[in-house]
Amino acid sequence: MTMQFNDETFRGDYTYHNSPEAIRRFPFPFDQDTYMYSVNIEQHPGGPKGTPFEKMFDVDEHYVAEMKDREITLAEDPLRCQSLPHMELAGWDLLELIMVSKARDYPDLFTLHRDGNDWHWINKPLGIEKKFTFLDATTLPCGPMEYITRQTQGDFALLHERDNNLWMDAGMITSQADWSLDFDVGMNFFEWHAPVPKARKMGVFDKALKFLLAVGQGQHYRRLNWTMTVNPRLDTSPENYHKWGPEKRTITPENVGQKQFLRVELQTFFRLPRSNALAFPIRCYLMNLEDIATKPKWGRRLHRVLRDIDPDLAEYKGFAVNQKTIVDYLSQFDDGAPTSPGIFPD
């Protein structure tokens, strides 16, 4: 195997770390020095070689550790993975999409042999080899969505289309930015977005839903979203708020560079063929301020974005309490020089 996987944790002693290569390829979400909502959608996959936009499902140095963290979260709280009965077919669609994509994009890590519905899947990084019958759930140890998403980085929501709306009827959600699948399961697009400030008035959701309903087979899209997290914790769920919420209060001017992380979500959209459902993978990338500032353009820009952001958004994204400390720290990297367009470092 050509890829090296980190031995690291996302809880307790928090040994998560980014290599220089991981820093270089980080999906920095700001393409200008200010931030407001936009329906910032692009076609997926596609992007410069080595970036996380290049492949359908990005696999990086955190893969094995992220899957171990998901296992711990699920063992403590099985309701992080739910699939309403009519969503099993969408689960098979997702399993097929991921297995076919990964075997094609990472042939040294994953192999898929198909003979009709007799499938043979080999996942080398996780040491899994499995023969099963496609579309027959009795041949897998769990449902198809759970099976494949225990082997794929990122959270996954499967959206059922009906009555000109999308319904969150299945998901695997263990690395979320403070929302709960158990609370949202069965809700429609407007219901599960209700807590987002300002956006509904701006008409963002009407446009976004119209766009999503029109996503066709073979047309895949992506967008970036972001928030801020203290410590490299994947499971920032409402269920476990009592564990990670208090950690926000541990930020000091001395430790903010190491403990404060920019949390980026690479969100992608796929129309699934058999179920006509939409798959909505949400992949999380974490990087602390210190590592971000190693790219001068990112250091300057992040300072300006977080300094000038709308106070409602700072509150919603959960970092208002530490905003001053963060901005003071980042100011040392901002010499006032202009920044180049686009998200990539200079």
């Binding site: 309403l84 009965p85 009519h86 077919l89 289309e161 009906r162 066709g216 087979q217 073979g218 063929p273 179920s275 006509n276």
Partner: peptide
Amino acid sequence: VSLPSNLFQLDLR
């Protein structure tokens, strides 16, 4: 031809 697209899907519920 276009790729298949569905405006009349079964409600599997």
